[in-house]
Deep mutational scan, measured.
Amino acid sequence: EMEYEEITLERGNSGLGFSIAGGTDNPHIGDDPSIFITKIIPGGAAAQDGRLRVNDSILFVNEVDVREVTHSAAVEALKEAGSIVRLYVMRRKP
């Protein structure tokens, strides 16, 4: 069973403070093209906020749908998102 969360982060000097993997051209798990959080960087915006978790998958960055995009398109969406970034994420319920 999945749960969904909308997380708004303010981009810090060091960016959003997380790493991603995945994409249609580089699936992270099997042939699932989802964009997954692979690392939360200590002291970064995501770590300070505390809600984003490793293995969360990002569905939307602001209004941009990143469910079926290449890795570089997801990176671009995050880069272009401005200083306030709304992430709509999905994760397995614990």
Rank of each mutant, 00 (worst) to 15 (best):
Q48M: 04
E80Q: 02
E6I: 03
R91V: 15
A47P: 02
D31L: 11
T24P: 14
G22V: 03
E76H: 09
R53M: 04
N13K: 06
T24S: 08
D65R: 09
S14E: 05
E63T: 10
A47L: 13
G30T: 13
D56P: 00
E5R: 12
I35A: 08
A21I: 12
S57R: 06
V89N: 05
T70H: 07
I41R: 05
L59Q: 11
L16Y: 11
E3Q: 03
S19F: 05
I84R: 06
M2D: 06
Y88E: 09
V69D: 13
R11G: 12
G30W: 07
V64D: 06
E68M: 13
I58G: 00
V64R: 12
L59G: 13
N62A: 10
P94Q: 04
M90V: 05
I40H: 00
A77V: 07
Y4N: 07
D56S: 09
V66E: 01
E6A: 07
A81H: 03
D49P: 04
L52H: 00
A81G: 06
L16S: 06
E1N: 15
Y88G: 01
T8V: 12
V54W: 06
L59C: 15
E5F: 15
H28W: 13
E5G: 03
S83C: 04
G22I: 03
P33Q: 13
G44T: 03
E63R: 07
G30L: 12
F36M: 13
I7C: 08
L16P: 04
D49V: 02
S72K: 11
N62Q: 08
R51K: 15
A47K: 12
G15D: 11
R11V: 06
E1W: 00
I35T: 14
A21G: 11
N55Y: 07
E63Y: 10
A45S: 14
S83H: 14
A21E: 12
D32K: 10
V64L: 09
L16A: 07
K39D: 09
R51Q: 15
E1C: 02
A45C: 14
P33L: 07
T8D: 12
D56Q: 14
R67K: 14
E5N: 15
R51M: 10
I41P: 15
F60Y: 13
Y4V: 01
A46R: 01
A21H: 06
